[in-house]
Amino acid sequence: MSRPDPLQLWDDVAQDTLAVVRELDGEEWQLPTALPGWDVRDVVAHLAHLESEAAGMPQPDGGGADQVEATGAMPTSLTQAGVDARRDASGEELRAELEQACSTRREVLADLDTSDLSAPAPGLVGGLGWDLRTWLRNRPVDLWVHATDLRRATGRTVRTDETGATHVARMLTGAFPFALRRLPPGTSVVAEITGPQGRTLAAQVGDDGRAAPVDPPTEPTVHLAMDDVTWLVLGSGREDPAGAAVTITGDAALAQQVLGQLNVMP
Rank of each mutant, 00 (worst) to 15 (best):
S52Q: 02
S52C: 07
L50Y: 06
L47Q: 07
G62S: 08
D84A: 15
D66C: 06
L50P: 09
M57V: 03
G63A: 12
P60L: 07
E53I: 03
G62M: 06
G64V: 07
A54H: 00
A65T: 13
M74T: 13
M74P: 01
G72I: 02
M57Q: 13
S77K: 12
A54Y: 05
A70W: 10
G72K: 11
H46Y: 02
E69A: 14
G82D: 00
G63M: 12
M57C: 04
G82E: 04
S77M: 04
T71W: 11
L47D: 06
A81Q: 04
E51N: 02
G72M: 11
A65K: 08
H49P: 02
A54I: 00
G63T: 06
A45D: 00
D66P: 09
M57F: 03
T71V: 14
P58L: 08
T76R: 14
A81K: 01
L78D: 12
P58N: 09
L78I: 03
Q59N: 09
E53N: 02
A55G: 13
E53M: 08
G62F: 05
L47P: 03
L47W: 07
M57W: 00
A73P: 03
L78S: 09
E51Q: 04
P60D: 08
A70L: 09
D61Y: 01
S77R: 14
V43G: 06
G63E: 12
G63R: 09
E69I: 09
E69V: 13
A45T: 01
M57D: 05
G64F: 10
T76W: 11
Q59E: 14
D61I: 09
Q59P: 01
E69K: 08
E51T: 00
D84C: 10
L78M: 15
T79M: 14
L47I: 00
M57A: 12
H46I: 04
H46K: 10
D61E: 15
G56F: 01
G72N: 12
P58H: 05
L78V: 15
P58G: 09
D84Y: 02
T79D: 07
G56W: 02
V43S: 05
A54K: 01
A55C: 12
E53F: 05
V68C: 10
E53Y: 01
V83Y: 04
Q80A: 14
S52R: 04
P58M: 06
A55Q: 03
G82R: 01
A54C: 03
S77W: 03
G63W: 00
A65D: 04
A55S: 09
S52I: 00
G82W: 04
D61H: 14
V68L: 14
M74R: 13
L78Q: 10
S77V: 13
E53T: 05
T76G: 11
H46G: 04
A70G: 09
H49M: 12
G63V: 10
E51A: 06
L78Y: 10
D66V: 12
D66T: 11
A65V: 15
E51C: 00
L50V: 11
Q59A: 15
G72T: 13
A70D: 08
A48L: 05
T79H: 06
G63S: 11
A65Q: 12
Q80G: 04
E53Q: 13
A54F: 09
T71A: 10
A70T: 11
Q80R: 14
T79L: 13
T71M: 08
H46N: 03
T71Y: 11
M74A: 13
S52F: 02
P58F: 06
